[in-house]
Design a protein around this nucleic acid. Structure first.
Lengths: 351, 351
DNA sequence: ATCACCTGTGGGAGCGCTCCCACAGTACCT
DNA sequence: AGGTACTGTGGGAGCGCTCCCACAGGTGAT
């Protein structure tokens, strides 16, 4: 038994018990001080804090998680093939926002990719094991089974964007409708008459809303909406090229293009240039996302900016609320749990 | 005591004990099966596996961590203000490599930013609490105290790049010397005579090595090295502009520029264009990193590519080895623990 | 003085695993 | 026949916390 008593497997780190002995109090009292309980006298608290400092005590997370049945960790789940995700600043900005908000808490962040089937299976294991207290879901498609899995496991989750107009999960979205409208209003104000729209994937709700905004702006300005001017790309550069060629074939007289992403705008620019159209002289071009590509394009691309960092921050705040208020979910409405943040136009030389 | 017996705080998830009862074996045997011990008969193993499947058993990570004193988690620590990091594809590619390698293990990945002092303090807490089994260090400066802290806490770590020629940590680097040399050899092959170098921060070892490669290529080709042609930037666009102006003032006859990063090349391009130099006709331009910016620049930028994804993968492999082989560190040499991966030139229209 | 009720505190029990000792059973030697 | 050495198995002890019950000592009403 001496063997057991002496093994000290945790690398000699002090335990609660040792802190308690040092401070001359009981284990429970130290626990109370560590966890900020008010039911401790000032003198005792000071003594414990001194002992903690002297010993360099740091709580053992695993023991705490086991005893309290929580993990103090949340996951940011990216259900995309990672490639697309990193191509745009969307992800990094969001991560920055989350990170900033996170640093005000004791939570830690796990980054989980769930692009491949294999990664999906791993994720399901993680969640089933309740290794996180909550989940941030980024860029989820309408038919993704993940939200259902989360609901079934009763794991709090917040989604970025909405899957449809009647999203059921707590969510943080940006004003895609407004973004589309701003872009088109701007082009109209510049005197453009024939404005095309390179839409994103229409099964993405946000992309759909941008189209709605495009149409609304045209109508409000008294322009008629020619549906041939709306061609769906798939958010990629190649998709942008393809759609732009189609557009040019159908309406060679167009004098402005609003693309649903900067990457698609980059594809469109190539095609326009090859067709001998000057930007912005012959055709004005507006992108979406305000990414690095927009700033470095030639000419620099006018683009619609979403406050992605703020969205990340807001998502974390919402999630923390979800985790904290574990009352029966039905007792609260969705009103306060769905945010829509504003978008803005960043004008550059392409329009 | 009925109260305690019935509380089932883990949300009704099955425990090892329950699996054991179901399979008609002891706790230890189930543990052996779960952990892949060979000391279990085939029949028993099958019975346990059946019970695991029927019950949907998933091990409790916290309990395992507590009992075994390991966490099955590693951290990717980014000691940079996040901003710079995401601006380049470096980070995302590395993360992709790490992620790919990770999916072959049971480990989970924590992403930790340690840019601000506040974040640093948090990180120190994490590490002191041994919340991870190992650390991947990305983009560490020569004078960073982090590696020492890690060594002191005896936490395995692998670093990307080297802090100096005699790096002590296990590391994965790319061939910066070769990269610099390829760029300059390429320019010489194109018939360029006066080749300038926009260097990065010279306190970054990799940037220094690129300069060495630049000099070596010139010498090997019998060119003389004019030190006025080497100006240090700071990896930023603004730094690129500043350095390019300086270069143009000192040697207006230059006909090629090798920039230590694509972002600096973008800055240089602006200045060159303002000075009326055509690219590549008057001045050839080569960047470094082969980032998205390179592909979208006008004209598309020739750039040196590092196999960053492979580096990420290699870093994880090394780290797993470090975690596994916990023999006295002195018993192994550094030879097998420092990798240098090749770089290659991606030629485009700017040269 | 008696009771009720606070505040502050100590410590037992338990979280779900892993580790390891003990031991039954079998196989192979001398 | 008796040893020796495996292989496979069960289960006690323990990891370091949190939760919560028990209780001491004080305060104020009766």
């Amino acid at each position: 038994m001496a063997v057991h008593g002496a093994r000290s497997r945790s690398g000699g780190r002090p335990t609660l018990e040792e802190v308690a002995a040092r401070a001359g109090v009981g284990r429970g009292t130290v626990s109370r001080v560590i966890n900020g309980s008010p039911r401790v006298s000032d003198a005792t608290r000071a003594a414990v804090e001194a002992a903690v400092a002297e010993l360099g005590y740091v709580p053992n997370t695993a023991a705490r998680a086991l005893a309290a049945n929580r993990t103090d960790a949340i996951a940011l789940v990216v259900p995309e093939p990672e490639t697309r995700f990193f191509a745009e600043p969307y992800f990094s900005d969001m991560l920055r926002g989350v990170g900033a908000a996170l640093s005000e808490t004791e939570m830690q962040l796990l980054l989980i990719f769930a692009g491949s089937d294999r990664e999906r299976a791993r994720l399901a294991q993680y969640l089933a094991a309740h290794r996180v207290d909550g989940v941030l879901l980024v860029s989820v498609h309408a038919d993704d089974p993940l939200p259902d899995l989360l609901a079934q496991l009763e794991i709090p989750a917040v989604i970025s964007g909405r899957r449809s107009a009647d999203e059921t999960l707590p969510s943080v979205d940006s004003d895609n409708f407004g973004g589309g409208r701003f872009a088109v209003e701007h082009l109209i104000a510049q005197g453009r008459r024939t404005i095309a729209h390179l839409a994103g994937r229409l099964d993405v709700f946000g992309a759909q809303r941008r189209v709605d905004g495009y149409r609304a702006a045209l109508r409000e300005a008294g322009h008629e909406v020619d549906e041939r001017l709306v061609v769906a790309g798939d958010f990629t550069e190649e998709g942008g090229r393809r759609a732009m060629k189609e557009l040019l074939a159908v309406r060679p007289d167009l004098d402005a293009v609003f693309a649903g992403s900067d990457v698609m705008a980059a594809g469109a620019r190539q095609v326009l240039r090859e067709a001998g159209r000057r930007i912005p002289d012959d055709v004005a071009l507006v992108g979406y996302d305000d990414s690095a590509i927009a700033r470095h394009m030639d000419p620099p691309l006018t683009s619609v900016r979403q406050p992605i960092e703020d969205m990340g921050r807001a998502m974390l705040d919402l999630l923390m609320d979800e985790i904290a208020d574990r009352r029966p979910a039905a007792s609260r409405g969705l009103e306060r749990r769905q945010l829509v943040l504003p978008t803005e136009l960043v004008a550059r030389q392409s329009s």
